[in-house]
């Protein structure tokens, strides 16, 4: 460990979803705010246990979809006026709109998809390559079969010794200090 590295948090390992859910609830009950759980699959109920608010992602998707819908409609309206093709009553707002439906529909979905993946990236602070957690020995099993509870050093209640003992006491294995 080089001298300019600071303590980033404490990580402890659990080997099944039941234990980590119980542990997360206990850590939360103790008053810790900046905690996180890393697991190979989503654990039902964990977001409530550690107090993560619902994701705003659907609003971002809705925004993308709405932009696609209105944008595609207006674009077709504008191009039809820009170079009018006066066939079968067209152009005209009401006459042509039914024919534009397919493109409106497709662009709505297309932009909604981009917004969803883009929103997913932004909300998760992706893309990145590095995480201090990768330095923890055994953390690579977080994507295999182990479950990790992390208490951030930024938590007001964080105290390296006390927090460490507490994590060990509630059943956390291999409690490790993570530096960054």
């Amino acid at each position: 460990m080089s001298t300019n590295e600071k303590v980033w948090g404490l990580v402890s390992r659990f080997d099944n979803p039941t234990d980590i859910l119980a542990a997360a609830e206990k850590v939360r009950a103790q008053g810790y705010k900046k905690i996180d759980v890393h697991s190979p699959f989503p654990i039902h109920g964990i977001e409530k246990a550690i107090g993560v608010k619902a994701t705003p992602l659907p609003w971002i998707s809705l925004l993308g979809g709405t932009a696609g819908c209105l944008g595609a409609w207006y674009f077709q309206y504008w191009t039809t006026l820009d170079y009018p093709m006066i066939i079968s009553g067209k152009p005209g707002l009401l006459h042509s709109t039914p024919a534009w439906f397919v493109v409106v529909f497709c662009v709505t979905i297309l932009l909604c998809a981009f917004a969803t993946l883009g929103g997913f990236m932004v909300l998760n602070d992706f893309p990145k390559y590095y995480s201090p957690l990768h330095k923890v020995k055994g953390f690579n099993r977080a994507s295999d079969d182990q479950f990790f509870l992390v208490v951030s050093a930024a938590d007001p209640q964080f105290d390296q010794r006390k927090t460490r003992d507490f994590l060990a006491q509630i059943g956390g294995q291999d409690v490790t200090v993570v530096t960054d």
């Binding site: 996180d36 759980v37 977001e47 993560v52 992602l57 602070d125 992706f126 990145k128």
Partner: peptide, 25 residues
Amino acid sequence: AVGWTGSVRQWMNFEKAYQIFAAIA
């Protein structure tokens, strides 16, 4: 993998994004 570590927030966003994709697909 764009920095995936399987945190709670990541999984929440993932599941929501997956559902939205399923709904629009």
